[in-house]
Amino acid sequence: MQAYLVRRLFESALILLGITLVTFILLYLVPADPARQIAGRSATAETVQNIRDQLGLNDPFFVQYWRYLTALFQGDMGRSYLQRAEVSELIAARLPASLLLMVAAIVTELIFGLTIGIIAALRRNRPADHGLMIFSFVSISAPQFVIGILLLYIFAVKLGWFPIGGYGTFAHVVLPAITLGFLGAGWYSRMMRSSMIDVLGQDFVRTAQAKGLAKGRIILRHVIPNAVLPIIAMIGIDIGLFMSGIVVVESVYGWPGIGQLAWQAIQRVDIPVIMGVTMVSATAIVLGNLLADLVAPMIDPRIKTK
């Protein structure tokens, strides 16, 4: 396990390094000029040029990239071009809101996904099973911004049950968490259904039935605990999925997390902030996948690490 962990950490470091390079190349090729954004529309060409010199934007690509990389290794993500603050401080101020939303979304998708999957498995090939699987397919296919706008219109605008946007109370987190967890609920329901059906066909379940154990007890004590094992191992992967989808949800609901910070930075071509949020998101994705790979063998001994 130690050798496997060391190898995976090394691979993760290489992946993050590759992400910094690809992101830096894309931002370098963006036609928008950050110096022009800072100077304003009425600024002279000389003023824009001076700003570019101050920011080092006139240096060759590899000089800029090496400067960023060496600073990053020292824990310095740079300063925001427009907010005049350290990128690490901006992200640190927004990260708790994003983590709260992520945890709420994971809880939401597990509650809905596992419940739907269990019911569908117990009603296999019946109308309830078909209907729930159609629902899960819709949840997987529906774009998050469409779900978000639809929930806002129905439950915030029409019914007034929840606030339209903002942050601070339990009511504020409900709709964003449902929107973010809607996709995962579909995946989990299908996975739980398949896992439940597989476990229901195992010998130990038939043995329990032959002993005369009540069906409810067999389901709760034997089937569900075994069926949920592969589901638990997938939670770590969700961290990465949520970090990639949280930008849309936070923008729709005005949630003050790093997703909203990233969207604002993209609109203003604030390169240090874009790079910082990308690195934090990429680190979460890599660590989430690593966590899933490490937890899976502990939960299910049949899974081997190589």
Rank of each mutant, 00 (worst) to 15 (best):
A43E: 06
Q267G: 15
I235E: 01
P272N: 09
S244A: 15
I271K: 13
T278I: 07
I149T: 06
I303P: 01
Q209M: 14
L213V: 11
Q202V: 11
L29G: 10
I218Q: 02
S189P: 10
G160A: 02
L82Q: 11
Q144P: 03
S98Y: 02
F204W: 04
L291R: 06
M196D: 05
R36H: 13
L290M: 10
I271S: 06
Q144F: 03
K304P: 07
P31Y: 09
T20Q: 04
M243F: 15
L183E: 00
K215G: 13
F242H: 14
L229P: 00
G78V: 08
D238K: 09
K304I: 13
W66L: 14
L180N: 00
W66G: 14
L21Y: 12
I134L: 12
P143I: 08
E250G: 00
K215Y: 14
R84C: 12
R206P: 05
G259V: 02
P34Y: 05
N58H: 12
V286N: 04
I239C: 08
A284S: 09
T44F: 04
V248N: 07
M192I: 04
V286M: 11
A3Q: 09
V295D: 00
M191D: 01
M102V: 07
L101G: 00
Q54I: 04
T70D: 14
T305D: 12
D203G: 06
I25A: 07
V269P: 01
G113Y: 03
V103K: 11
